[in-house]
Design a protein around this nucleic acid. Structure first.
Length: 827
RNA sequence: GCCCGGGUGGUGGAAUGGUAGACACGGUGGACUCAAAAUCCAUUGCUCGCAAGGGCGUGCGGGUUCGACUCCCGCCCCGGGCACCA
């Protein structure tokens, strides 16, 4: 053997193969590729600099699938791009004066280089950067079509406003104590006119279609809860002493409990508050409203600090239409203007939060559902017959009572059946510079006017000043701000808000299918060919927002004629990986706990790092990076060294001979088939850690075989090693490629070998270990034929001397036989 | 607070109602070496015992079952998301 084959040197071989894959375009795929299509996609990253271990893990999983599907004969679409708009680049611009584009492009190059060095392969001809003007053009065209179709609209919505900075803050910029991270001022809520996308139009479909997706149940559950469909009723209550036009509309999921309403609660932002509050209550109500304005929704809905001072009486009363009773109207922080009608009827008998509120404010409690006799709790949420409810009394269950109550409301003309969603429309306006401009102008005559398509994309000017106030520089750039109305040519102002970056990530996977056809964001044919994504891979932190927005966008684009009409779901299968944590918190640049992969590339190599991420635990689990982690990574390098010495034939005491086939050789070949079976099934169930463990066991077995007295048979060993290299190729692509070339000659590559298939005859085992228990305790292990029946297994178990000793002459009361695995003898 | 996960040796984890701890990391002992590195071998849940062998053991408390890490109920602890971080 020559010097290069003698020792494993990852630095020498990894870059060589990476350059070859790039130069040969091995993993580029054309849209007319004749192989069956398969689309593997990892969530495109925000470019924050060189890859961190979270990226390494994510892209290792994706790359494994790309390479395996390629070996299986698919034409695999494996694109990547960059989610390149966002707050960090803007903050860096303010800090350093560097334009966000310069900053971002530099970060992208760093990230790309470190992913290349990992050996992850992509069709880079399809790369997308969300700040690319071509991508922005289509983002803006789509926005204008949304506007045309009524899917985009403007309304007022509260934002975080910092009085010191005179600007809008992201939630992230508001510290836990409610102050601005920059100035320390107390952040307040302020209403601004903002753009929304009507995702609620699709609420029903987004909910119903979840059932058929091959997604993790937990993600589907989170989306279901997020959409939060509820069925109930909406009805009007007159305000006592006011005219008939002054009514409070409430939404309830429990119209059957209306006779138990003992008060009404409005959100502090409710438009009726000023009108109905009595003069003697004004000061207290105003103070309360102001205080709640400073709270987040999470604080408002928390019941943690107790319920004191969480509500205030307005002095007004509402009339319960069911029985004419006058009940007091309160304000409470836990009622949100954004859900339902912003007003609720409170029924403390059947709602625990209402119960606590009623107790706090000495309000009456009336039960309208009969709790079971042994009920000791407070509010009763369960089923039961209606009580204390006049004409509803005696209805045996909640479901029937709801129907009766709603029928009555509709007959009286004061209310109706109503399906409600927790899901709110998507607020897409961002008061930032580094985002895709919203392509409209405001004309004093023609109001909102979209920028004509031939003038797109609207791109922010470069000569702006980044001020440390956090204010978008667009507001102060006269050249950008002042324009003319596309309709009348008169003076007009541009929209200075940009789009939420989730807009960019809501359709990039469609653009990847075809970033080339002029005149369209992507061609229908290409989308037809590749979509939906066969396997989407990303972090669990995107379980709700990104995935829901992408599902909405795909439907909207199909309905607007951009995508094929029948394309509803973008991601056929979803896999969500766990996070890499360090010291208990998520790895992130801001926490300064990133571990760059570069140092591993320079020492143990990319293959060892990839193998580590596959081996360390189930891909869905979080992983805590610790001081011991480097030792585990070193262990992967040692294992690959063993593989190298075995496959390159440079291992000590390897003893291979040409000789006739023996039963020992047959066992080794069977072992290889069992490995194929195990690794293939483990890959299919995302159990990479056990697949790696199986390969390690196999390598140990082959070493024992090749180092034994009688030695290994050359052909058998060659079959075993070649099988191993093929199975490991998707996990550790460089070392397996190099070894394959070494064994089979220049120009050959393991990566175009067909994925091995196990022969079922060779996988079958002849004998099994029968576990014998007495009263559930393990007492013996017996080797039995794999096809042993119940009687045979029982007989073998009873014949065991150890079992006889335990029984001590007692007759078995019962024998549970589960051949060929187990017999349990109960005495 | 609400929604969603998780808890197994010193450590990462394995075990789809049937042998708890596969495979690794670390530790201990040994071989090779002048020495070290590398490599290789043995051993390694806790505990009693010279040994054979026994007992205990999957966050805590109950339950279902011949049998529970696994299923059910009630707790405790840790993590993720909560709509302007992406």
């Amino acid at each position: 053997m020559d010097g290069t084959a003698a020792t494993y040197n990852p630095q020498a071989i990894e870059v060589k193969w990476q350059e070859r894959w790039a130069a040969d375009g091995t993993y580029q795929v054309d849209n007319d590729d004749p192989r069956p299509p398969y689309y593997v996609l990892c969530m495109y990253p925000y470019p924050s600099g060189p890859a961190h271990q979270g990226h390494v893990r994510n892209y290792t999983f994706g790359d494994l699938l790309v390479r395996k599907a390629t070996m299986q004969g698919y034409g695999v679409l494996s694109p990547l791009g960059f989610d390149s708009f966002g707050l960090p680049a803007e903050n860096a611009a303010i800090r350093t004066g560097t334009h966000p584009r310069t900053f971002t492009d530099a970060r992208i190059e760093e990230l790309k280089a470190s992913l290349r060095r990992l050996g992850a392969v992509y069709d880079w001809r399809r790369e997308i950067r969300s700040h690319d003007p071509e991508y922005m053009r289509w983002n803006q065209v789509i926005f204008e079509r949304f506007l045309e179709a009524g899917l985009a609209y403007r309304k007022k919505a509260p934002v975080n406003w910092c009085p010191g900075c005179q600007t809008v803050l992201a939630n992230e910029q508001v510290l836990p104590d409610g102050t601005c991270e920059r100035s320390g001022d107390l952040v307040v809520k302020r209403d601004l006119e903002q753009w929304f996308f009507k995702i609620t139009d699709y609420a029903d479909e987004l909910l119903a279609a979840l059932d058929d997706l091959e997604w993790p149940e937990r993600v589907k559950t989170m989306q279901r809860n997020w959409i939060g469909r509820s069925e109930g009723a909406e009805f009007e209550l007159r305000v006592a002493g006011a005219g008939p036009e002054t009514t409070v509309r409430v939404y309830t999921t429990r119209p059957d409990t209306s006779f138990g309403m003992t008060f009404v609660v409005l959100a502090p932002e409710h438009p009726l508050v000023d009108q109905i509050t009595t003069p003697d209550r004004r000061d207290e109500v105003a103070a309360f409203v102001e205080r709640v304005a400073g709270e987040t929704d999470i604080e408002r809905q928390s019941t943690d600090p107790g319920l004191d001072k969480r509500g205030v009486f307005t002095g007004a009363y509402a009339v319960n239409p069911f029985n004419g009773a006058e009940v007091p109207i309160y304000l409470a922080d836990y009622v949100l203007m954004t859900y339902g009608t912003g007003a609720i009827m409170a029924v403390p008998g059947q709602d625990q939060r209402d119960w606590e509120f009623a107790t706090q404010y000495d309000l009456p409690i009336i039960r309208t559902v009969q709790p079971p006799p042994d009920w000791t709790g407070e509010a009763y949420l369960g089923d039961g017959p209606v009580i204390n409810s006049a004409w509803l009394n005696g209805i045996p269950d909640v479901r029937a009572a709801k129907v009766a109550a709603i029928d009555w409301l509709e007959a009286q003309g004061i209310g109706r059946r109503k399906v409600n969603y927790r899901l709110r429309d998507w607020l897409v306006s961002r008061q930032r510079f580094w985002g895709c401009p919203i392509p409209v102008v405001y004309c004093p005559v023609h109001n909102i006017v979209p920028v004509p398509e031939d003038q797109l994309p609207v791109v922010a000017p470069d000569d702006v000043e980044f001020r440390p106030t956090g204010e978008s520089p667009l507001r102060y750039n006269a050249e950008f701000l002042n324009t003319t109305c596309p309709i009348c040519g008169g003076p007009a102002e541009r929209e200075t808000d940009t789009m939420d970056t989730f807009v960019d990530s809501s359709w990039y996977f469609l653009r990847f299918c075809d970033p080339w056809t002029p005149g369209v964001p992507f061609s229908q044919e290409a989308a037809e060919h590749w979509m939906p994504v066969d396997q989407y891979i990303g972090g669990i932190e995107h379980a709700i927002l990104h995935l829901l927005y992408a599902r909405f966008y795909t439907r909207a684009l199909a309905d607007l004629g951009f995508a094929p009409k029948h394309l509803r779901e973008p991601f056929e299968r979803l896999f969500t990986q766990g996070m890499i944590r360090m010291g208990g918190s998520k790895m992130s640049k801001s926490k300064g706990n990133l571990i760059a992969p570069a140092k591993y590339y320079e020492t143990v190599g990319a293959d060892s790092l990839r193998l580590f991420h596959l081996f360390v635990g189930p891909p869905t689990d979080d992983f805590d990076w610790s001081e011991q982690t480097d030792e585990v990574i070193d262990g992967m390098h040692r294992f690959l060294g063993r593989v190298w010495r075995l496959a390159a034939g440079s291992g000590e005491r390897l003893h291979l001979v040409d000789r006739p086939f023996t039963p020992t050789d047959e066992e080794v070949e069977k072992g290889a088939h069992r490995l194929i079976d195990r690794v293939s099934r483990d890959f299919d169930r995302w159990s990479y850690n056990t697949a790696v463990a199986a390969c390690m066991e196999f390598v140990n077995d082959i070493y024992r075989y090749a180092q034994s007295e009688e030695g290994g048979r050359t052909e058998t060993a060659a079959f075993a090693v070649d099988t191993l290299l093929k199975l490991m190729a998707p996990m550790t692509p460089h070392i397996t490629a190099e070894l394959w070339e070494l064994r089979h000659g220049a120009g050959t590559t393991v990566h175009n070998q067909p994925w091995p298939v196990a022969d079922p005859e060779m996988v079958r085992v002849d004998t099994e270990t029968l576990v014998v228990q007495v009263n559930g305790k393990l007492r013996d292990r017996i080797t039995v034929a794999a096809d042993v029946d119940e009687a045979g297994a029982t007989a073998a178990a009873l014949a065991s001397p150890k079992v006889q000793e335990q029984l001590a002459g007692r007759p078995p009361r019962r024998v549970v036989a589960r051949p060929p695995r187990l017999v349990n003898i109960v005495v």
